[in-house]
Design a protein around this nucleic acid. Structure first.
Length: 270
DNA sequence: CATATGTCCTGAGAGC
DNA sequence: TGCTCTCAGGACATAT
């Protein structure tokens, strides 16, 4: 999603506003009046990503952090309906072109934060592990190797490794041929290496395909276009279908930590 | 301390 | 059709 908004780098924020809210207002910290005083008139010098969050770095050192969780979107186009929680930044791009950046959230689970440079380091970055796209087997093993948790659950721990979501954890474990219920402490050095390689492979491919738009249609890219990676899922949402790799069993669905996991009982050994 | 679970919210789809 | 139930790219507070 961040790739779709790189062009707002260099833009000056003219105005921040929260539009149409029905029941619960969109959570913005600090409250909107103070938020506005700190961002209006400021220039965005860089767009960034911190795990699953989208970050606008301001010239002042402040950081606007969008935390979409499952249901929020950061958009360069007008949200498709006027309902739901919405937030908008009016921008002037380099060259004097007027533009907008929107945040739109159908279930209202997401949040927007404004951090000072220091608070960004201490209150956000300090809570996130190394980015999943960069991990090595050694890093994974160092951070999770002594945990008793199921490896699938551990992969979702953003403090351990930042950036892996529920469906990607399932896809990664299938590529690495590791059972989701395997305890971290029981993985071999070699399996950590395979897990790291699978993580990089799955996530970079998913980014290339602009993510996964599931049947509820929630996820879209910054131009409000559906992703394509859902067509390449190996196991996620495939319960009962034959394993695309071994064809020796059908994909099974289990629940771990309250969340669905899919795996092949034949080629992901416990 | 580490790990497990409930909760926030809306809407789509399945099943009766 | 109309109802109820379940579940959804997450993260965090609270309990054990």
């Amino acid at each position: 999603m961040r790739r779709g908004i790189v062009d707002v780098a260099g833009a000056v924020i003219q105005r921040a506003r929260r539009t149409a809210c029905q029941r619960k207002p969109l959570e913005i910290t600090p409250p909107l009046s103070r938020f506005r005083r700190r961002v209006e008139g400021r220039r965005i010098v860089r767009t960034d990503r911190a795990g699953k969050r989208v970050v606008l770095c301001l010239e002042s050192g402040d950081r606007i952090v969008f935390e979409p969780r499952m249901t929020g979107l950061v958009l360069r186009v007008d949200p498709p309906t006027a309902e739901h929680l919405r937030f908008r930044l009016d921008l002037t791009l380099p060259g004097g072109i007027e533009a907008e950046l929107y945040y739109w959230d159908r279930r209202g689970l997401g949040k927007i934060h404004l951090f000072s440079a220091l608070a960004y380091e201490e209150n956000l970055l300090a809570t996130l592990g190394p980015d999943a796209l960069d991990v090595t087997g050694e890093v994974l093993r160092a951070r999770l190797g002594r945990s008793a948790r199921a490896v699938k659950v551990a992969l979702l721990d953003q403090q351990a490794i930042a950036g892996i979501g529920n469906l990607y954890a399932a896809e990664i474990l299938h590529v690495a041929r590791i059972h989701p219920n395997r305890r971290c402490e029981r993985l071999s050095r070699r399996q950590w290496e395979e897990l790291a390689a699978a993580t990089r492979e799955v996530l970079s491919e998913a980014i290339q395909y602009e993510g996964s738009t599931l049947s509820d249609g929630t996820y879209r890219n910054a131009l409000n276009q559906a992703g394509g990676y859902q067509n390449r899922h190996r196991v996620y949402g495939k319960a009962g279908k034959p394993c695309p790799r071994c064809r020796g069993a059908s994909i099974r669905r289990i629940v771990q930590a309250g969340r669905a996991t899919f795996y092949c009982p034949a080629c992901q050994k416990a």
